[in-house]
């Protein structure tokens, strides 16, 4: 195995070896004050400091969960409390009342996230792999082609025209998928990854064995690059899951509105009411379905929950993928 490659794959496992080392050293540490380990007092201080940081990062989510279970009267009277006077599941009742729309939006979000991620992973890895190969004569041109778009964007209105008028994607699910499918930044990341983790020599030997470039790609490169691909996949999963703006532009059909966009819409409608009170009051029957604070927080909870429970599982891949560019001899 070439050296570069070894480093790369060793990182994925380095965590565990490190732990083993730590475990082995444990017995020794008690006897000598081993400089490899921290002074217990310092260790405690650091633990506490990091503990505070960790709590700060996840506390808001739990706080929002608590608020979503607070009764509306309690919010009006006492504000958002850490331990509410009155608990209530009214907010979730309310959400259940709009379950049709909610399930629909969930479905849309999941669909675009999965399909979109697959499409973008393939498009990005193919592109990045090709421009990372020295055999490819035009690699510099295509690198620049991608790179240039990081700097100059076309602007909102022209992009809108391409999507709606040339491609005719308005009010289709593809309008939520295609515009986010590529990102020059990811291409560049992936290219760097391939440059560093895939050495020519291994490909050379495969070529001598008569493997086609496609076979090499799928049988050798793909498995080797899983950490990098996982990182890109995660980036685009997040991009799709958290996207609201594409829907604002391209979707009029309530059937195709994703979750985050639904949340934005509620907030935007409230804002409209505030700025156009005369309309809001004259047409009050139209606005009687505006959710209250606790219901909004309940929506935040259900939009966040899937990510919150799933990311710890793919975190491992993510971390090893992040070492791209990180480790250098």
């Amino acid at each position: 195995m070439p050296k570069e490659l070894q480093t790369q794959s060793s990182i994925a496992v380095s965590h565990s070896t490190n732990e083993m080392k730590g475990g082995g050293a444990k017995a020794l540490r008690k006897k000598y004050r081993d400089p490899q380990h921290l002074h217990p007092v310092v260790n405690t201080i650091i633990s506490v400091l990091l503990g505070i940081l960790a709590v700060m990062c996840i506390f808001p989510f739990f706080y929002v969960i608590i608020i979503s279970f607070t009764s509306e009267e309690s919010i009006v009277r006492n504000g958002f409390q850490l331990v509410p006077k009155d608990w209530s599941i009214d907010a979730y009742h309310y959400l259940w009342g709009m379950k049709e729309q909610l399930f629909r939006s969930y479905g849309v979000t999941i669909f675009i996230t999965i399909v979109g991620t697959i499409i973008s992973v393939f498009m990005i890895t193919f592109y990045a792999y090709a421009i990372s190969r020295p055999q490819f004569k035009y690699r510099r041109f295509f690198t620049f082609l991608a790179f240039f778009t990081m700097l100059f964007s076309g602007g909102l209105v022209p992009t809108y025209i391409v999507v709606t008028q040339f491609l005719g994607l308005k009010n289709t699910i593809w309008a939520l998928i295609l515009p986010l499918a590529m990102n020059a930044f990811y291409i560049i990341i992936m290219r760097t990854f391939f440059l560093k983790s895939v050495s020519e020599s291994i490909l050379e030997s495969a070529r001598i064995d008569g493997a086609s470039e496609w076979r090499i790609f799928f049988q050798i490169i793909f498995p080797l690059s899983l950490p990098g691909i996982a990182t890109i996949a995660l980036f685009s999963t997040l991009g799709y899951w958290n996207d609201w703006f594409t829907a604002l532009l391209y979707i009029d059909e309530p059937n195709l509105v994703p979750l985050q966009s639904l949340l934005m819409k509620i907030e935007a409608n409230l804002e409209f009411m505030r700025q156009n009170m005369d309309v809001a009051i004259m047409q009050s029957s139209l606005f009687n379905t505006i959710p209250q604070e606790s219901a909004k927080m309940a929506m935040v909870v259900i939009a966040t929950l899937p990510i919150a429970v799933s990311y710890p599982f793919f975190q491992k891949y993510f971390i090893s993928g992040l070492t791209i560019g990180g480790v250098k001899e």
């Binding site: 209105v157 809108y160 025209i161 008028q165 604002l248 934005m264 509620i266 907030e267 409608n269 409209f272």
Partner: peptide, 21 residues
């Protein structure tokens, strides 16, 4: 007839009109 939600209206109509849809 297509209805555009209250809060989206200002932004969406702006883009639609400017794009010459």
């Amino acid at each position: 007839m297509t209805q555009i939600d209250w809060g989206d209206w200002a932004q969406k109509s702006q883009v639609m009109i400017n794009s010459g849809e």
